[in-house]
């Protein structure tokens, strides 16, 4: 519990450090009520929101050792509803307790709590409302799932059990074959009835559009590609697929790319044509001409390259961040990223 739900006080007590109280205190009483005969709240661990938010890892380590001393079979954290600091702390503590103590944990949050996106992959987070007006109902749902986790019962699908999807795929046997299910879905769609896709598309957090380059004629423009251009011999050993690495290759003094000096290791498309002429992928020739004609202030002297095929989202994001940081540090104003 945080300071508020642990009955220590309001925002003025948010800096308070961790403590343990025997039995159920504050909102933990709802957890005890929900447990009924099925279990006993042995202790309530409390800590101020800001104490955790300002110390993160160190505070979680303290809290884990307090939880460890109770030798409990289950940790119920929260529910945190829409409280952001509280939600992040609940998620972090549940993840750490599961990982370090092997004790199952459950928490609950509103879908817009930032703790959901941060921890839903590691922790069962029950979907709750935004406010604590129905605390006992919410506690019942946390406890129902928590008891299953504590008993090592099989956990059903997120929708059935009321927790946020953890990104885990289970094989199940469907009642009908795919053609029938697809046809039924199509008929539902045509009739305007609700239907649920079996293949949810990944959702990508929107990246805010950077402002325009005010004056391209005085800007430094860089070329980047995920099309697999590498110098002969692939000195950075960039993977042909599922890349974890990228290369930074100088084009200083080069008016164009000499085909004999380059290779292509991308295994996701027929690279015959870009091996014949690397400009079909990385347009150094025309970019240099535009620079010399004054249409571009300066062509950045380093080309970044990797292979974009079966590359994990996490690696793509990391490489993108790293490349962007280098380009920014080098004073680049705009990037043309050519992709296959």
């Amino acid at each position: 519990m945080n300071q508020f739900f642990g009955q220590l006080g309001g925002e003025e007590k948010a800096a308070i450090g961790p403590d343990v109280v025997e039995g159920a205190v504050g909102a933990a009483r709802a957890v005890q009520q929900a447990l009924g005969e099925s279990g006993t709240v042995v202790a309530t661990v409390r800590c101020g929101d800001n104490y955790v938010a300002e110390r993160s890892d160190a505070a979680i380590t303290e809290l884990v050792s307090l939880v460890a001393a109770q030798r409990a079979d289950l940790l119920v954290a929260g529910p945190a509803f829409l409280a952001g600091r509280y939600g992040v702390a609940c998620g972090a503590l549940c993840a750490a307790v599961q990982r370090e103590l092997g004790i199952p944990a459950v928490t609950g949050m509103h879908e817009e709590n930032p703790g959901v996106d941060l921890y839903r992959r590691y922790v069962h987070i029950v979907r709750t409302s935004g406010e604590a007006t129905r605390m006992l109902d919410e506690a019942r749902r946390l406890v129902a799932l928590g008891l299953k986790l504590a008993r090592r019962d099989e956990i059903g699908a997120p929708d059935a059990e009321g927790y946020f999807p953890r990104g885990i795929t289970h094989n199940v046997v469907a009642r009908e074959h795919a053609a029938r299910r697809a046809t039924a879905m199509l008929l539902d769609k045509l009739a305007g009835r609700p239907f649920t896709s079996e293949v949810p598309l990944p959702s990508f957090a929107p990246a805010p559009a950077p402002p325009r380059v005010a004056d391209v004629r005085h800007a430094t423009i860089a070329l980047v590609t995920d099309g697999g251009l590498v110098p002969q011999g692939n000195p950075d050993r960039i993977e042909s697929l599922a890349a974890t690495r990228y290369g930074a290759y100088s084009i200083a003094e080069k008016r164009e790319l000499e085909p004999a000096q380059y290779d292509n290791v991308h295994r996701g498309y027929d690279t015959t044509y870009v091996k014949q002429d690397p400009h079909r992928l990385v347009p150094v020739d025309v970019a240099r001409e535009l620079e010399q004609a004054g249409a571009v202030g300066k062509l950045h002297e380093v080309v970044y390259s990797t292979t974009g095929v079966a590359t994990t989202l996490a690696n793509s994001e990391r490489m993108g961040r790293e490349i962007a940081a280098e380009l920014k540090a080098a004073g680049v104003h705009g990037v043309i990223l050519t992709s296959t």
């Binding site: 014949q276 002429d277 400009h279 992928l281 347009p283 025309v286 535009l290 043309i336």
Partner: peptide
């Protein structure tokens, strides 16, 4: 297979095509 080119064009036409795409990219920026 050749985002900034087209092997079926003459070298001059291919380069003109490439230049148009890069200029379009600069306009986008």
């Amino acid at each position: 297979i050749h985002p900034l080119g087209n092997a079926e064009l003459s070298p001059e036409d291919e380069k003109a095509l490439r230049r148009r795409i890069v200029e379009q990219a600069l306009r986008a920026l």
